[in-house]
Structures are given as C-alpha cells and as structure tokens.
Design a protein around this nucleic acid. Structure first.
Lengths: 222, 222
DNA sequence: CGAGCGTTTGAACAGCGTCAAAACAAGTGG
DNA sequence: CCACTTGTTTTGACGCTGTTCAAACGCTCG
C-alpha cells in the first residue's frame, strides 16, 4: 500500500493540514483525511484491529469479511465507489477489509469524526444516516439469505449490482468464490446458476468478470 | 389495544405532559411518551405504515417481521424487555411488529426524538448507538443464516436467549413457526433439531415454551 | 368430551453441497 | 511465440441435509 497525493496539483499550504485536506465523508460532512492506494487482494484492515479510521471507496472495489472459527467465510458486503466502510461503534474492527481490485481509498481519522459529532448535531445526524443505510441494506440481504433459493439469490445479487451501476452491463470485480461467500452458497452453485441463466437467455456472460442483463423480468421473478 | 397508566400512582400535573411523562428510551436519553398494552398476536404497527413512533418493550415480547411477495415470512428479530424497535430513517415502517405475548410497550413520538437530536449532540449520539447496536446484532445473525447448518442455527438461537436472560432456563415466548422464520428453516426442522438436542441430553424441554440448557459446550460446538 | 391449534414424527423427495476432473485464463520464463 | 505453471471456473456424478407432504399426538378451551 502507498499513500497517494489526492489530485494532480501539488499539495499547498492551504489544502493540506497535518491531518490532510478536507474530504467529503458524505455530501454534507467533510473531514480532514487522506488517500491511500491498495493493490488487488491487499488487506485494508484486519478483524480485531483497532478501528482508528473510517474509509470510503474513491475508486475500485472492496470486500468486508469475517470468519467462523472453522474457516467458513462470510462476505458481509461489497463496497463500490462512494461507499463508506469500516465505521465502528467499538474500539476494534468486527470485519476485515480487502481490496477486490487495485483501488483508491479515502481515509478519515475516527477521532476527527468523533470530535465533529460532539459539537455539531448535523454531523451527528449524518453519522446516524450512514449507519441506518447500512442497517437497511443488510436487512434486505438477510431476507435474501433466510428465505430465497440459489437462483433467487444470484438474481437479487445481479439486479442490485446493475441498479448501482444504473446499467444492464454489470462488471463483477469479485470472484465466484466471493459471490458464493456473500450469498451463502458454494462456488459450484453460483457457477451453475449463472450458466443456467445464460442458457435461458436471461443474461449473457461475455467473460467471467462481466454479466449483461438481457431479461430483467425473469431475474425479478426468479 | 389500550393506553395504560404507567405506574400504580395516579398521574400528577408534574409527571404528565400532553405528550406524556418523561420515559427512558435509553439510560441516557429520556423523552416524553406513554405506555400501551397489546394482547398476544395483536399488531403494534404494520409494514408501510407511517413511522411516527418509536417503541420500547417494557414487559412481554415482540416480533418484527416482513414478507416476500409470495408469502414467505422472515422474522427480523425478537424484542424482549429493554429492547427498542420500530426506529426508522424514512417515513414508513419497513417491518411490521406483533405482540408475541400480552405486553406493555413504551411509545415515544418520533417528532420528539427528532427535536431532541437536533439540539443535543449527546442525544444524537445515543440514537446512533441504538442503530449501531441493531446493526451489530443483525450482522451476527447474518453469519448464522449464511454459513450455519440447522443444528448450529438452533443452538445459536438458544444460547443467545439464555445469555439475554442470564439463565440456563430459557422461556420461549415464540412458536416453532416463529423460530423457523427467524432462522431460515421450516417448523419441522426446528422441532426435529430441538428433539434431537433433548435426546442427546444437551437441553431439556419440560414443555413447548421452555428449554433448559444442560450442556452449553455441546451447543457451542454444534 | 370434542374441536381446533400447535407440535412431533415419519417417509419420500429435491435442492444444494461435496468431490473429482476437465476446461479455461493469466502469467512466467525459455 | 510457445511450453509450462498456477489459479479460477465449469461440468459431472453422487449423497446428504433439510423440505414437503401427511398423519398422529397433545394441548387448551369451549
């Protein structure tokens, strides 16, 4: 990993503090921070490590994961540009985060966030909204995990990605194994399901890291 | 349902406002509110209804649920005394809530909470903590749903209830069907799994609404 | 005592996981 | 440019776990 300069311009006395320049954690809340670059598969932070920073994806993609004691893995979420991750209530991270692709990550000191929230109720509200959105997203995912079958899970996943990108051409920065560990399935089932969708002319798979939605209705019904 | 007087004492001019007396939403945040009683199976609020109130269990137990379009049900959580539920970011409830048993519910107007949070950063933080705890709880549950088998799911469930009550004698205010819809299983599988635990002397089932943990280690290993 | 639920139990079935091998993709070094 | 390696994805055969369907059992309450 490597600390990156934010822009093409060289840093100046006005836009760089010892904590870095002001960066938008949300559209309404900017805090001093800096950027870091991570290479594909590099760890951004580990489970149980001190949660001294909050992160936001500037470019690339990230996964947050945790493990059961016997090694079974769960991927809590995939984070795309604009997503905030690594925000904790306690002292340590409850997930680890790894780069899915080479990526640029905005890094903000948690102490700076804490201070902003102590004096500014609007900032405090922004923080609450961030966490609420996380909660809503994950409640949606819980429904998928508890009550949907393999085809429905993969369909939901593809549709969510397409909605985020606002396009029927979906880039898949994650491996089949990552998708499986996110959906509570096996690699083989994910692969078989996608191939079946392709045979049924519901999607096209020009290569393993790209899917094109050809029949949204069929995916919704799946 | 029926609006209840809070205590044995009659309300007085000092502890009752038009909004009700001050009630502790959390130990550190009290707001004007009132109590309501609900009968077993009575609906407290419905999905898509305006989220004008926040609720806290005073006594009894509550479930929050949602449905897939074809009727498959998911129980997001069971709420026991002290638990806050029905707190939303948006305008409407994203779950419905029903009384599992006869229960007393503390009801606080959301507008009162909003106002408190606008002027008081400490209150705003309390709100964030509430939502964060929800998120943490549900992330834990997600791991159960995505990567654990039937025996492990039921074991986690019993252990969590026992931890909450700080006792090896676990009251089960919910039906087998409720447990099934919470754990992403069927009634039959829940029943079979519990009977098997009983046969293996891991738990005792004096009746259908009570379980006694006899071998915590076996449950943890399950 | 009988009706109506919820729960338990059984038998058959199916969906998904497991294991194994083949196909494919992406580098690496000759 | 090709042979070789390594890791990922696909495909196939098989078996287990959990579902489905059906029936029996046991509460609770008229």
């Amino acid at each position: 990993m490597q600390i990156e300069s934010v822009t093409n311009e060289a840093p100046t006395a006005t836009n760089v503090s010892p904590m870095g320049r002001l960066l938008p954690l949300t559209p309404n809340l900017s805090l001093p921070g800096f950027f870091m670059g991570f290479a594909r598969n590099e760890e951004i932070f580990g489970e149980e490590e001190p949660a001294d920073f909050v992160y936001k994806v500037a470019s690339g993609a990230v996964r947050t994961t945790r493990f059961l004691c016997d090694g079974r893995r769960q991927i809590e979420a995939f984070h795309l540009p604009g997503d905030v991750f690594g925000l904790e209530r306690g002292e340590v991270h409850r997930f680890s985060a790894e780069a899915l692709t080479n990526c640029q990550i905005m890094v903000i000191r948690r102490s700076a966030l804490d201070r902003a929230v102590e004096r500014d109720c609007a900032a405090a509200r922004e923080l609450w909204v961030l966490t609420s959105q996380d909660l809503e997203r994950i409640q949606e995912h819980m429904l998928v995990l508890s009550r949907k079958n393999a085809a429905e899970r993969v369909a939901s996943f593809l549709l969510k990605l397409a909605d985020r990108r606002a396009s029927d051409i979906v880039e898949l920065p994650m491996s089949r194994g990552d998708i499986a560990d996110h959906l509570g399935l096996t690699i083989e089932t994910v692969s078989r399901t996608m191939t079946q969708f392709e045979r049924d002319n519901v999607i096209a798979l020009p290569n393993t890291r790209q899917a094109i939605l050809k029949n949204r209705a069929a995916l919704l019904a799946a």
